[in-house]
Design a protein around this nucleic acid. Structure first.
Lengths: 336, 336
DNA sequence: ATGAAAGCGCTAACAT
DNA sequence: ATGTTAGCGCTTTCAT
C-alpha cells in the first residue's frame, strides 16, 4: 500500500509537499502538483483516513445508534426508513456512517458515550431508545454532538427531530369526532416511549374540545407490536362493547387490533373504526387499508443527519426540528 | 480526553506498562495492573481505536456496501433483513459496521476498492450490485476480503452467500405443474441480476421435466418493481389469454401482477394462479396472500458476516454458502 | 514554493 | 516485570 512517503520519494519532493499538493493547498507550484498527482496515480495511492483522523482528531464518521435493530424490526419499516434518510443526507457529505451494535449484551456493558468515544465518531444519531434507558441522560448531557430521533430532549450538544405527535393525535381525534364517533378507545404505546405521552395528550385534547368523554378505562397500553394491539383491543371492547372507534398509537398495533377484532366477529370499519399512527408500508396493503397519521419517516432521518452535520461542520446549534405529519384516510374508518 | 500517557504519568509507570496492563498481557504485576486499571477509571479513559488501528493495521470494521439503499428499497424488506442479519452476527464479534454510501454520484467516482482502502475496513460485504457494475470484477479480483450476497463469484479473497435460486424456481415450477397448470408464464427480473438467470434456468428445468411447453413468448422481464410486474403480466396475458399461472421472480413483481390483472377483471387465484419469490413481509398481508418461495434473508446476511469474520480472524477460505429456501403455499395459487 | 521536524495515541520489538 | 525507543501515515508549525 503506497503512502505519501512513497510518492515523495518517487517524485523527488518532501512528504510535506505531497500532502499539500494532494490536499489542494495553493502554496504549491502547479507543475509540482501535477507531477505529484501523477505519481500518486501511478502508485495507485489511496489516502489513509485512519492516519488522517488520528492527527486531525476528526474521523468524518457519524454513529448511528439504533436500539433494537434486529430481526423483528424489519416488520416495522420505520427504522429502515429513518436509516435511509440518514444515509441519503450523509451521502451528500463526506461523512460515513458507523452502525453501532447495541442489542448485544457485550456492548451494553459500555455506555453510549464510551461507544462513541472509542470509535471516535464525530457525532451520533440515536433512535429507538427508551425513556428509561440508563445511558440516555449521559449522552444528552455529554460532549458528543448528538441528534435524537423522537426523543424530545435538548442539551448543550444534543438536539432532536420528531414529528408533532400531539398535533397528529389531535387530528386523529378530531377526525373521529367529526365522523360522528362519541365512544372512542385508545391503544397507546408503552410508557417508556416519549411519543406515547404526546400522542395521549393530543388525543385527549381533541376529545375534550369536542366534548367527548374519554376516561382511563378507555385507554389500554401495548408495546407497539401486533400482538399487544390485538390484546388491548379485545380488552377495551370487553370492558365497553359500545365503543365504535379505536385510535392506536402505532399502525402495527392497529393491524393487530383489526385482526383480533375481526376474529371476534366485529366488522371493520362497519362496527369499529380504526385509526393508526405512522403510515408504515403495511398500512396501505392490509384489508381494509388503514386510516392513519403519516409521519415523514425518511425526513426524520434526513433532518437528523442534516442537523448533526450542521453542528459538526458549521458550528450549528442543537435545536428542535419537526417534520410534517398528515392524516391519511383509508378504509378502516367510517362515518357514523 | 485521557490517554495512556496520562495514565502512565499518574500511575507512575511507563506507557508500555499501561498498554500491557490494559490489554491483559500476562507479563505485568497484578498489583501494577490493578493500580493502572484504577487510574484509568479515575481518568475516565477510553482507548483510542483510531490510534490502535493505525499501528495494528486492523480497523475492526467491516464495510457494508448496499447498492441502492435508498428510500424506495424500504418497500422491499429484503435489504433490511440482510442488514439485520449482518448486524446480528457482527454484534457477537467486536467488529463494527461501516455503511458505505454508494448511491451518491460523488462516491461513484471511486471504485469500491478505493472506498474500502480509504476507510480501511478489514473486509466488506456487498449486496445489490448488478452484473454490469464496472467495479464488480475489481473487488472480486482484489485483495480485500469480501463476501458477496447473491452474486455467485469466488475469488482469492471473495466468497459468496446465496440461496439455491435454481432449486427454488424448480420447486415453484414443479408445484404449479402438479397443481395442474399446463400454460404458465414467467415474469423474470432484469438480466443484470445474477438471480434472474438462475431462476429462469430452474423454472425451465421444471417445465421440461413435466413436459410442459414453455417458450420465450411466455417470459417477460421486469426490474423487480411492482409497476414492472404489472406491465409484464398484462403483456403476457395479452399475448396468450389462455395462461393460467404466472411465476414471478420477485414478490414485488408478483404483487404488481396481481393488481394489474385484477384491474383487468381477472380473478386471483380462480383465473390466474400467482407464485412469487422472496417471501417479503408484504406477501403475507396482501389479498389474496401470496404463494412464494421463501428465502432465509436474515440468514443471508448472518452467514455473510460469519464467513467474512471467519476469513478475517481465522484465516478461513472464501467459499460458497447456501441458505435454505422453502415453498410457502398461500392463497394466490390454486389447483386446476 | 518547499522542506525538516514534531507529534497525534498507540503497539511492539528490544533491552534491562 | 518494567522501561526505552521506534514507528504506523498523516498534518502542521516553523524555517528557509
Amino acid at each position: 500500500m503506497a503512502t505519501i512517503k512513497d510518492i515523495a520519494k518517487k517524485a523527488g519532493v518532501s512528504i510535506t509537499t505531497v500532502s499539500r499538493a494532494l490536499n489542494g493547498y495553493s502554496d504549491v507550484n502547479e507543475d509540482t502538483r501535477k507531477k505529484i498527482i501523477e505519481t500518486a496515480k501511478s502508485l495507485n495511492y489511496s489516502p489513509n483516513t485512519i492516519a488522517r483522523s488520528l492527527v486531525m482528531k476528526k474521523s468524518r464518521t457519524i454513529g448511528l445508534l439504533i436500539s433494537g435493530l434486529m430481526r423483528e424490526s424489519a416488520k416495522d419499516n420505520f427504522m429502515i426508513e429513518v436509516m435511509t434518510g440518514v444515509n441519503d443526507f450523509a451521502s451528500q457529505t463526506d461523512y460515513d456512517i458507523v452502525l453501532f451494535n447495541t442489542n448485544s449484551s457485550k456492548q451494553r456493558e459500555k455506555t453510549y458515550t464510551q461507544l462513541c468515544r472509542e470509535r471516535k465518531v464525530d457525532g451520533v444519531i440515536i433512535q429507538g431508545i427508551r425513556t428509561d434507558d440508563p445511558y440516555l441522560e449521559e449522552v444528552v448531557e455529554g460532549e458528543i454532538p448528538c441528534v435524537l430521533v423522537d426523543i424530545p430532549k435538548i442539551g448543550r450538544y444534543a438536539g432532536y427531530v420528531s414529528s408533532d405527535n400531539a398535533a397528529g393525535s389531535f387530528e386523529a381525534g378530531n377526525y373521529l369526532a367529526e365522523a360522528g364517533h362519541t365512544n372512542i378507545g385508545m391503544i397507546n404505546g408503552h410508557e417508556y416511549a416519549f411519543v406515547s405521552k404526546e400522542r395521549l395528550t393530543g388525543f385527549q385534547k381533541a376529545m375534550m374540545e369536542k366534548g367527548i368523554s374519554f376516561q382511563a378505562d378507555h385507554i389500554e397500553n401495548g408495546d407497539f407490536t401486533e400482538e399487544s394491539g390485538e390484546r388491548a383491543a379485545l380488552t377495551l371492547l370487553e370492558r365497553d362493547p359500545a365503543i365504535t372507534a379505536l385510535f392506536c398509537a402505532s399502525d402495527l398495533m392497529a393491524i393487530g387490533a383489526m385482526n383480533g377484532l375481526r376474529a371476534k366477529g366485529y366488522r371493520i370499519p362497519e362496527d369499529i373504526s380504526i385509526v393508526g399512527y405512522d403510515n408504515i408500508l403495511l398500512s396501505r396493503y392490509v384489508q381494509p387499508s388503514l386510516t392513519t397519521i403519516a409521519q415523514d419517516t425518511h425526513g426524520l432521518g434526513y433532518e437528523a443527519a442534516k442537523m448533526l452535520v450542521d453542528m459538526l461542520d458549521h458550528d450549528g446549534k442543537p435545536r428542535r426540528t419537526l417534520v410534517k405529519h398528515e392524516l391519511i384516510v383509508r378504509n378502516s374508518s367510517i362515518m357514523r
